[in-house]
Amino acid sequence: MTEHLSRGCLAKRNSDREKQMKKVIESTDISKAFGSTKALNDIAFSVDESEIFGFIGPDGAGKTTLFRIIATLLLPDKGEMKVLGMDCIAGFKELRKNIGYMPGRFSLYQDLTVEENLNFYATVFGTTVKKNYDLISDIYSHIEPFKKRLAGKLSGGMKQKLALSCALIHKPKLLILDEPTTGVDAVSRSEFWAMLARLRQHDITIIVSTPYMDEAMRCDRVALIQNGSILTVAPPQKIRNGFSRKLFMIKASEKYKLIIALRKYPGTVTAYPFGDSVHVTFSDDSIDESLFRFLSKEGLSKVTAVETEAGIEDRFLELMKKGATV
């Protein structure tokens, strides 16, 4: 165990040295259309070694298409995609040995047991479970007690862990996870992210897509993606800091009435429902007594307002709005 740990640390140090020179993914102006629908428009980004890079965006934003291009499963119409220094089109055979891909629907054989699934993927990738056990043990140990169970009989969280184990079994340099947390309950989701964080020790670069804005904080860097275009790429905290105005969280007894009233208020720039409150920006970036007077005149009681830090979703909304008006 200690030996394994020290080896991990050594590898980490080595990788730090190389980090500057090595890009794991370099995407240059990738576009892809299906018939008349444009799935991706001029996607450009790069991913560094050993980073967890997230693609955050709603369904239909183009995340799956992009991931399939990275995984050599689709050809882009235009642009260049370099993965691990190889071209995705010309070098697809070599690349396929070095990437681990977990598609949106966990690609498991429902009629095979947990163990059989894992063994199958191990042989297909020319390795054995034994050889790479230390890599997957952190994840696989959760489901090992059920190894004789059919994969189809597992819960969502367990399927997700098994699929991740299968994608990792050949010790890939790049792990591509397409919406790994969709359809999985909150507890399993949070466990899953903790596992990904620990995988970094093993020198594995991870790209992951998700429609959940709140998961952005778990990534080193994220790209916000919408309608086939990248809105921004940055570390999550930086994205939050990019919010251009002061944001206020306002609550009142009747939410719907509050939204309507706030939209009527002359100083309001935006007002969106956000959980049990309304997130509001004002043209003068401050609130004064006149707002409270206005709201009480509109018949609202128990009004509270505090300044709050913008979340990823607030910034996403702002960027979407900008894209719509520009």
Partner: peptide, 13 residues
């Protein structure tokens, strides 16, 4: 689940 933030807000409204 899975819809964009603007649609989501409009939906909740």
């Amino acid at each position: 689940g899975g819809v964009d933030p603007i649609t989501r807000r409009q939906f909740w409204e």
